[in-house]
Design a protein around this nucleic acid. Structure first.
Length: 232
DNA sequence: AGGCTAACCTATTCACACC
DNA sequence: GGTGTGAATAGGTTAGCCT
């Protein structure tokens, strides 16, 4: 059983300095994190006097404590290699790395934990950029389609206006033509019922020119709908 | 079912390096 | 001195084991 991790729950954790109790390893190590702690066996305190004494010792140890040190590049290289093999750490691997690198098992575990956090953040960043790229693409397409709609609406308005004007003109010249024109207009779903016909067409959203035809006429490539995400 | 242990996680702190 | 980065800590959660 490993002291520095398994016994954590025995020790009150509200007081930060008490972490001294459970963050050193009792195993002998060539590279102890905290000088002053080596060779000591962890002991549970049972009386207030013992607690006071322990706290005094802790203060001393803290004063003697070596400053935080960065891991060497070769240590990081080995840890990195191991991480690439498997991002989770089992006990055997932890102990093996600990022996090989001359680090506390706790240090190995902490390094892996921090490494996983960094890895996760990186993954999240990649995911964000991938989604953003996709969004930009779709947004761009939407913008183009909106422009297309505007153009088509303008064209319909223009055509409707021309039809209306020529209708009035032929009415003045001869009834037969007027009737046929009128019939034609009424025949197409009876959309045009007033002199305001052009506005009516636009307002109803009926389109006289099929989009496919328009695309063919204007040499506009049809969007790939099957590839587009469903958007209600 | 509930307690214990050992792993994990996120958030935070702390020390150090670099500018 | 301010800031970024990485090692370490704090406190919580979860899964597996045992009684």
């Amino acid at each position: 059983m490993e002291w520095n991790e398994s016994t954590r729950s025995f020790v009150p954790r509200a007081e930060p300095s008490l972490s001294f109790f459970y963050n050193y390893s009792s195993s002998s190590n060539s590279n102890p994190s905290y000088p002053g702690s080596e060779g000591k066996e962890a002991a549970l305190v049972e009386t207030p006097q013992e607690l006071l004494h322990a706290m005094e010792e802790m203060k001393y140890a803290a004063s003697q404590r070596e400053k935080k040190k960065r891991l060497t590049s070769s240590q990081i290289e080995s840890l990195e290699r191991s991480f690439q093999e498997e991002i989770k750490l089992d006990t055997d691997r932890k102990m093996k790395l600990s022996r090989e690198l001359g680090l506390q098992p706790r240090q190995i575990a902490v390094w892996f934990q921090n490494r996983r956090t960094r890895w996760k953040a990186k993954q999240l960043e990649h995911l964000y950029f991938a989604l953003k790229q996709e969004f930009d693409l779709i947004s761009n397409e939407k913008h183009k389609l909106q422009e297309e709609v505007m153009r088509l609406k303008a064209r319909i308005r223009e055509q409707a206006y021309r039809t209306h004007v020529s209708g009035v003109y032929t009415e003045m010249c001869g009834a037969e033509t007027v009737e046929s024109t009128s019939e034609m207009l009424h025949g197409s779903k009876g959309m045009i019922t007033s002199s305001n016909s052009n506005q009516q067409i636009i307002a109803d959203g009926y389109c006289c020119v099929p989009v496919e035809d328009h695309h063919q006429q204007n040499n506009v490539p049809l969007p790939n709908w099957s590839a587009a995400p469903y958007c209600p």
